[in-house]
Amino acid sequence: MMPDFPQLLVPRDTLGPLPVLHLFGEPFVSVGARRVDIPRSCRRLLVFVALRPSRVERPYAAGSLWPINDEARADGNLRSALWRLNRMDVQLLSVDKYGLTMRDEVAVDLRAVSAWATRVIDGTATTADLRAAPPGMDSLELLPGWYDDWALMERERIRQRLLHALDSQSRHLMRMGLYADAVDVAMAAVGAEPLRESAQRLLIEAHLAAGNWVEGRRSLAVYAGLLDRELGVRPAPELTALLRCPPSSGPAGSRPGPFPVKSVVNPRG
């Protein structure tokens, strides 16, 4: 079985498999090919600490996870959850009387994906980074079914980060001449957020860069129809202008003319 996208990005250790905490989908831990389930009674604590970039103070963790206006009871709940975590055969947290943090040897798939997105966005991505593309945003939904405020905020943060990364990735792939890959990545971004203009622009540009004007026209027609149905507006003039400029090569008689915007949008009123 091919490893999933986050698993491809998790650092490897040549001395042996390291524990990996998986947060996309139902949380679990893996050590090599072995899956280790997390007890439900301590799952929220482990995830809460994993989502923090640095050490978490014990009172903050207890108050956030058990906001019951009873510090002693919340601290007791924290100690109980830590006891259950310590009974697992994989050690995941470093704990002292003041705070908690993930152990250095534990990899977190969310952190690996976030680091990949940062490299792609800031222009430091390797060729391997740019060729590694998620199959779709559905496979990268963080903690689905979790409705804690801190989980919802992190889910939306990583979603927006990934959408920006897909935009940047598609643009980089076009510059490398990898137009088919650029189209695939842009389509993943469009599938995640069909009304997002930057993704639709990149999809059209990728088609045009590959010389596929018909596909570029079709993509704009689909987007124009969607905008009309959902918002009652037309595509931005800058977007339609992409298809008003014929390609500079090829027989003049074969060059397509301006894109007929009115043929794909039914003006209201």
Score class of each variant (00 low, 15 high):
residue 106 V to A: 10
residue 104 D to N: 06
residue 176 M to T: 00
residue 134 P to L: 08
residue 45 L to F: 08
residue 142 L to R: 05
residue 59 P to Q: 03
residue 70 D to Y: 02
residue 142 L to K: 03
residue 122 D to P: 10
residue 82 L to P: 08
residue 51 L to E: 05
residue 123 G to P: 08
residue 168 S to E: 04
residue 101 T to N: 11
residue 119 R to C: 08
residue 93 L to R: 08
residue 79 R to S: 11
residue 177 G to N: 01
residue 172 H to A: 14
residue 142 L to A: 01
residue 82 L to T: 04
residue 105 E to K: 02
residue 172 H to D: 08
residue 159 R to W: 03
residue 144 P to L: 12
residue 161 R to S: 13
residue 126 T to N: 10
residue 176 M to R: 10
residue 83 W to I: 06
residue 116 W to V: 08
residue 160 Q to P: 00
residue 44 R to D: 15
residue 137 M to Y: 03
residue 129 D to F: 10
residue 50 A to N: 06
residue 107 A to S: 15
residue 141 E to W: 01
residue 76 G to D: 07
residue 150 W to K: 01
residue 149 D to N: 12
residue 123 G to E: 02
residue 150 W to D: 06
residue 163 L to R: 10
residue 56 V to P: 11
residue 115 A to H: 14
residue 119 R to N: 11
residue 60 Y to D: 14
residue 78 L to G: 04
residue 129 D to V: 06
residue 102 M to H: 02
residue 46 L to A: 06
residue 115 A to T: 14
residue 122 D to V: 14
residue 96 D to I: 06
residue 83 W to T: 14
residue 73 R to G: 00
residue 59 P to M: 04
residue 115 A to V: 09
residue 117 A to P: 04
residue 154 E to N: 04
residue 157 R to G: 00
residue 85 L to N: 03
residue 94 S to M: 03
residue 77 N to M: 14
residue 161 R to T: 14
residue 157 R to A: 12
residue 114 S to W: 01
residue 61 A to L: 11
residue 94 S to N: 03
residue 153 M to L: 11
residue 113 V to N: 12
residue 157 R to E: 05
residue 171 R to Y: 04
residue 73 R to T: 13
residue 163 L to S: 09
residue 70 D to L: 01
residue 113 V to D: 10
residue 78 L to H: 07
residue 140 L to K: 04
residue 175 R to Q: 11
residue 151 A to P: 11
residue 60 Y to N: 11
residue 143 L to T: 00
residue 173 L to P: 02
residue 150 W to S: 02
residue 87 R to S: 08
residue 85 L to S: 04
residue 175 R to C: 07
residue 103 R to E: 12
residue 108 V to S: 04
residue 172 H to M: 07
residue 126 T to D: 09
residue 69 N to G: 11
residue 174 M to N: 09
residue 102 M to W: 01
residue 69 N to R: 14
residue 142 L to F: 06
residue 121 I to A: 00
residue 108 V to N: 05
residue 92 L to F: 10
residue 112 A to T: 03
residue 173 L to K: 00
residue 145 G to D: 12
residue 125 A to I: 05
residue 43 R to K: 07
residue 140 L to S: 02
residue 171 R to W: 05
residue 167 D to H: 14
residue 56 V to A: 09
residue 68 I to Q: 13
residue 110 L to H: 12
residue 150 W to E: 02
residue 163 L to K: 00
residue 159 R to I: 00
residue 74 A to C: 09
residue 87 R to H: 02
residue 75 D to M: 15
residue 154 E to I: 03
residue 170 S to I: 08
residue 64 S to K: 10
residue 134 P to T: 07
residue 52 R to T: 12
residue 114 S to K: 06
residue 79 R to F: 03
residue 149 D to Q: 12
residue 174 M to Y: 00
residue 115 A to S: 15
residue 108 V to Q: 08
residue 77 N to T: 00
residue 42 C to Q: 02
residue 121 I to Q: 04
residue 123 G to T: 05
residue 105 E to D: 14
residue 172 H to C: 10
residue 73 R to D: 13
